[in-house]
Design a protein around this nucleic acid. Structure first.
Ligand code: FES
Ligand code: FES
Lengths: 141, 141
DNA sequence: CATATTCAGGAATTATGGTACCTTTATTCC
DNA sequence: GGAATAAAGGTACCATAATTCCTGAATATG
């Protein structure tokens, strides 16, 4: 049940919701989105609230309202979505903070840093358009 | 301040503490270890309690007591330390659970799974002895 | 045997993340 | 125009996990 990456349910909801919006290409209400991805509507709403504040989606109130992606999905990286929810993701030098270490240098010797960077690069590279492209049998970076 | 990997402070303490014990090769009290790695003594004690229960260290009470590694450091992988603290670390198929997904297949297309596996492999590969070996030739506290 | 030292275990506290509920805005239909 | 309804915004609450604190038990020492 673990999951080695620090992906909260909130981020997962953001990825899935944004991906869905990108595929549909049309405005959807929070209720619709939550139903489509089988997730708590309350939580999804809160997540999209943050996405809206970050400017990644535009929200419209009232009947017929909902959320729509503001930019071209090809221009929106997963990293921006992640950042909107979790705040800035720095991949530090070490797994622990940079507090004084009993070892001269980091005992992980930069290996973990490299792997973190790899994940970060992935988030930077993949866009919402890539996600929807996957659904059409296409390939992906 | 983020850190992409789900490494709690507890695990970080376990890695550093065990690494230190491996380097020293001698019994150390919780107080000593905590001071050496600049970390809450209360928390370290709690962490080592779990390591003791998992059989990774042997604890001795009373004056002169403390903790010592039970096995050859070359035989103890970081994964076993991680597992002793966090419980079994499964790297699931997707970042979200396996609940119904709006997309036909996982939108991450196995990339994230591969990266999780890579990290897991790293934890399986590196032993406490490797950590101390890194220290040879470097400065140490 | 008294006493100091050190870990064990659980209780209390704090922090985080998720949920429920009420408020505001906008549309639609009389 | 006003009432009713649909939808997002915001706040307060709750659950769970992480951390600290406190008391007790074991062991060495004089
Ligand atoms: S900071 Fe201690 S090992 Fe990296
Ligand atoms: S389960 Fe939905 S994308 Fe992986």
């Amino acid at each position: 049940m673990a999951g080695l990456f620090r992906i909260s349910e909130a981020v997962s909801i953001a990825f899935h919701g944004m991906g869905l919006l990108a595929v549909r290409g049309a405005r959807m209400s929070g209720h619709e989105i939550a139903n489509a991805i089988c997730v708590s509507e309350a939580h999804l709403l809160k997540v999209f609230q943050r996405l809206a504040r970050a400017g990644l989606v535009h929200s419209t109130r009232g009947p017929g309202g909902g959320f729509e992606i503001t930019e071209d999905p090809r221009a929106v990286t997963l990293f921006r979505v992640y950042e909107a929810i979790e705040g800035t993701a720095e991949c530090g030098v070490c797994l622990l903070g940079t507090t004084t270490c009993p070892f001269g240098r980091c005992i992980f010797g930069g290996e973990t840093e490299r792997m973190e960077k790899e994940f970060l690069d992935y988030l930077h590279r993949v866009t919402l358009a890539d996600l929807s492209a996957k659904d059409e049998g296409g390939t992906n970076a």
